[in-house]
C-alpha cells in the first residue's frame, strides 16, 4: 500500500500563549510503527491527543485514509473509533470488570451483540494471558496487568491505528517488560502504531521510523539507526547522551 494511512500536515496547537505543537508533519503507512521520542514537555503526548481528536487543533490537517478527520465538520466519534489510544495512567473504568471494560465500547458504539463482544474479548484475554482476570475489577490488578487490559480494550474496537502515550512510564520497573512484550507482538502482527516512549532500546527494536521532538517541533525524523544512533542535530545528540547516562 503506497498511500499513507495517517498523514499529519503542518499541525499547530496552542494553549493560550504557549505553542505546544509548531508545524508538525508526519506520515505513516499501514503496518508501519513510529516511535516518538524527546524530552518531557516537547509536545509528544499532545500530538497523540490531537491525532485522536481529544484536543482540537489550531491549524493544519490530520488525514486518516485520505480523509481530513480534523475538519471541524467531520464527526469526531467516527474517527476515534478507528484510532485506539493507550494512556500512561491506564484509565480503565474502575466500576467495571475487566470483561465489561473491554466490551463496553464494542457494544455501545459498534452495537455488537453482548455474546459476540464477549467472544472477542475472551479471545484477546486468552492471547495476552489475562483470561483468569476476566471478572476482576481493575483495582485488583497490577499496573502491568491494568495496562495490558487497556491495550486489549483499545484492540477490541479493531482500530486501524494504535497510539501509545508513554505506556510504561507509570509502571514499576519489573512490570515494564510485560507491557512492551505486548506492543512488540502487535508490531510483528502488522498493527500500525505510534508509540511515545522513553524506552529507546525498545524504540530501536520495534520502530520503522523515529520522530525526535523538542519544544513542539520535529527536530529529526528517520530510521531508528540514524535518529537514535547517529543524529545530525546537536539537540538530539544531547538528549541521547543524557538518556544513555541515566539509563
Amino acid at each position: 500500500m503506497s498511500t499513507a494511512l495517517l498523514e499529519v500536515r503542518g499541525l499547530w496547537k496552542e494553549f493560550g500563549d504557549l505553542t505546544v505543537l509548531a508545524d508538525v508533519s508526519l506520515s505513516l503507512r499501514t503496518h508501519e510503527v513510529m516511535a516518538v521520542v524527546g524530552p518531557s514537555g516537547s509536545g509528544k503526548s499532545t500530538l497523540l491527543r490531537c491525532i485522536n481528536l481529544l484536543e482540537p487543533i489550531d491549524d493544519g490537517q490530520i488525514l486518516l485514509d485520505g480523509v481530513d478527520i480534523s475538519d471541524p465538520e467531520f464527526e469526531a466519534d467516527q474517527a476515534r473509533r478507528r484510532i485506539g489510544i493507550v494512556f500512561q495512567s491506564f484509565n480503565l473504568f474502575p466500576h467495571l470488570t475487566v470483561l465489561d471494560n473491554i466490551t463496553l465500547a464494542p457494544r455501545k458504539v459498534l452495537k455488537t451483540s453482548e455474546e459476540e463482544a464477549q467472544i472477542t474479548a475472551q479471545h484477546l484475554l486468552d492471547r495476552f494471558d489475562l483470561a483468569d482476570k476476566r471478572d476482576e475489577y481493575p483495582d485488583r490488578l497490577s499496573g502491568g496487568q491494568q495496562q495490558r487490559v487497556a491495550i486489549i480494550r483499545a484492540l477490541a474496537m479493531s482500530p486501524a491505528l494504535m497510539l501509545f502515550d508513554e505506556p510504561t512510564s507509570a509502571l514499576d520497573p519489573e512490570l515494564v517488560g510485560e507491557v512492551l512484550e505486548v506492543i512488540k507482538t502487535l508490531a510483528t502482527e502488522g498493527m500500525t502504531m505510534i508509540v511515545v516512549s522513553h524506552e529507546l532500546g525498545f524504540a530501536r527494536d520495534v520502530a520503522d521510523a523515529v520522530l525526535f521532538m523538542d519544544e513542539g517541533r520535529v527536530v529529526e525524523k528517520g530510521p531508528p539507526d540514524q535518529v537514535l544512533v547517529d543524529p545530525t542535530t546537536d539537540r538530539a545528540r544531547r538528549f541521547l547522551s543524557l538518556m544513555a547516562e541515566s539509563g
Binding site: R49, N52, L54, D77, Q78, R80, R81, I83, G84, I85, F87, S89, N91, L92, F93, L104, A105, K108, V109, L110, R153, A154, M157
Partner: peptide, 21 residues
C-alpha cells in the same frame, strides 16, 4: 476527566460517556 477522555477515545459519544462511565 481522564475517564471521559478514555471513554471518548473508544468512540463513545459524550452522552454515552456520561451514561456508562
Amino acid at each position: 476527566e481522564s475517564q471521559t477522555a478514555a471513554a471518548r477515545s473508544l468512540g463513545l459519544s459524550s452522552a454515552q460517556s456520561m451514561r456508562w462511565v
